[in-house]
Design a protein around this nucleic acid. Structure first.
Lengths: 353, 353
DNA sequence: TTGAAAGCGCTAACAG
DNA sequence: CTGTTAGCGCTTTCAA
């Protein structure tokens, strides 16, 4: 029957030992240690148990508890496996807040493959996670359906679904675009193109809608709108290429995120043009270092860490009270003006390349 | 005795059900399903078990298994909670590789506080992790002593200890500095200062040593060496300030990492100087986007994803064979020449600020 | 080669 | 208020 534990770190103290030292039964220890059941135990006994636990350095075994209760105080977090991005602050915010709620996080970095995502989620469920934070979802994501079917609490972060089936924490993407457009229009721009993001993500879709709507509010229409397939600098460069080729009259580009905007930088430079003089560029996210590129990027700031924290809060609520209503948290974005936007040039682009 | 499971996702299939369907005892199922014990079971029975497991969609319950065996196929990963940095690729590399070894990762983002780190590690141990990957260690870290005492397999990544008590995967930091110095000397520089990193981390210490040693190899000596307390842009800016004030004769700055180098950019700009003309600057890490700053940063590239992968491999070996020797993996860095280095100016700095 | 049985550490219904 | 008892799902010794 030998319990093959790790080589030899002194084996952990069990509840039974605490019970012996305190002179009570294990179940009393269990009750005394759990705040929810503590009132059942007479104060004097609680004190004895606490003391015994302390002197022995007892820690509750979460694995045993989990086997018994089916809960784990463990939360799974699925994030896209991209290095250059906003997911790190989301993660640090979420994990920090989760731990104040008494939860630990299992983070899984996943690619776009839906099959792999389902597998990973299955793993997490097998590990009895109490809930999931998803930073990966598309507008109608099978994973969300899966969680719903399994009755596993889930919260979306950064990206939401088209239909609000589970709680989500997102930035007000349409409002962000409005800030961008208002800024450009105030500078005098009227021929503005859009580098849209992937349309299967809410960020791509809503920012695009926001772009169009904000323009319309000023009585303007889009001068070009190209969709990038992924949020990468390379795709951004390529899309910007098409945008400029198709609409040489534009004086400004609004990108759906910073990486796309930086791709546009590459293209603009390649054409021998300068930003902001020939073309103004504006990003979205305000990710680290974009203030250091040349010119410093004007962009829409989102507080990703706050997003992570709120997602943790929302998940905790969802776990704790089974049928809390599906609540969405929408965070207000902020315009950060730097050097990549200025008044428009007069006349057409004169490409030196 | 009610098992209070999640509201109502159909309760997971148990081994017992598989046993019934296959017409054998649970212990036979257990043996058939575990590759290590499978040879004990007659082939025909194995087949029946497999088929039954498949049709029922059985998944082994890792929690129950863990309670019984003391192992978890779970690995804890401790990383510093900084957003702008090299730890994301280390993490994606490590978690991807871990999963091919059949392990899941619990990632914890931690601050510099030693007490908090110990607590977190305690949590992970309570969750019965089979091992730890530490990206946080200082040159003589209590956490490593703790793991040793608990006989918990641990592997260091990116940063090592002074004494090799446990396996580590690091870049050849001294070699990296040699590449930097050789490059600058080849360009004609001879008055070179160093923006050193925190000396309690191996990266800071070794890069500093490498700097000094590489200079000596060219018959040169340091023109200034300031230590930054943390790897941040702000500290870098401040340290660069001191460096330039104390050694106005320098023509080049070698920074211990990219963030410090970017801080130096700020200072140089503030002084009305230009890089590389007035002062050449070289970083370390080649983190994302440093090719986009102005001027594009010359730096030493480290493959952090590979680092993560190797750390996962090393940990797996350490877990699997208890007393494998303490092996260090040292990855070769590469010089990436961009726009922040050029031939030195003639004469003194003429600050316009 | 397989089944029986014990038990990992904990929680919760039940009885007192 | 507290002790007894059963058992979460699995692994492994022991006996057949």
């Amino acid at each position: 029957m030998s319990q093959q534990s790790r080589g030899g770190g002194r084996r952990p103290v069990t509840m039974k030992q605490v019970a012996e030292l305190a002179g009570v039964h294990v179940s009393t220890v269990s009750r005394a240690l759990n705040p929810a059941t503590r009132p059942m135990v007479v104060a004097e006994a609680v004190a004895r148990v606490m003391k015994a636990a302390n002197t022995l350095g007892y820690r509750l075994d979460p694995v045993a508890a989990s086997l018994r209760t089916g809960r784990s105080r463990l939360v799974g977090v699925l994030v896209p496996d991209i290095a250059t991005s906003v997911f790190t602050p989301i993660l640090t915010g979420a994990t920090a807040r989760l731990s104040t709620h008494g939860y630990s996080a299992m983070v899984a970095y996943v690619g776009a493959d839906a099959r792999q995502q389902l597998d990973l989620a299955g793993d997490l469920i097998a590990r009895r996670v109490d809930g999931l934070i998803l930073a990966t979802v598309s507008l109608d994501d099978p994973l969300v359906g899966f969680c719903l079917a399994e009755k596993l609490p889930a919260v979306l972060v950064n990206r939401a679904e088209k239909e609000a089936r589970v709680p989500a924490v997102v930035s007000d993407d349409m409002r962000g675009m409005q800030l961008a457009i208002d800024h450009l229009v105030a500078l005098g721009h009227s021929r503005i193109g859009h580098l849209a993001g992937p349309q299967q993500h809410s960020t791509g879709l809503l920012r695009r809608q926001g772009f169009l709507q904000a323009l319309a509010a000023h009585g303007l229409k889009a001068h070009g709108l190209i969709e990038a397939g992924t949020y990468t600098r390379e795709e951004g460069a390529q899309a910007a290429q098409q945008l400029i080729d198709g609409h040489p009259e534009i004086t400004a580009i609004v990108a759906a995120n910073d990486l796309l905007a930086l791709g546009a930088y590459d293209t603009v430079r390649e054409h021998g043009l300068t930003c902001p003089h020939d073309i103004a560029i504006i990003g979205h996210n305000d990710m680290p270092l974009v203030d250091l590129v040349q010119p410093p990027l004007t962009t829409i700031r989102i507080s990703h860490e706050e997003m992570g924290r709120q997602a943790a809060d929302l998940l905790q609520q969802t776990i704790e009270s089974a049928d809390s209503p599906v609540r969405n948290v929408v965070l207000p974005p902020r315009l950060i003006v730097r050097g990549s936007t200025a008044a428009p040039r007069k006349g057409r682009i004169k490409s030196k390349a």
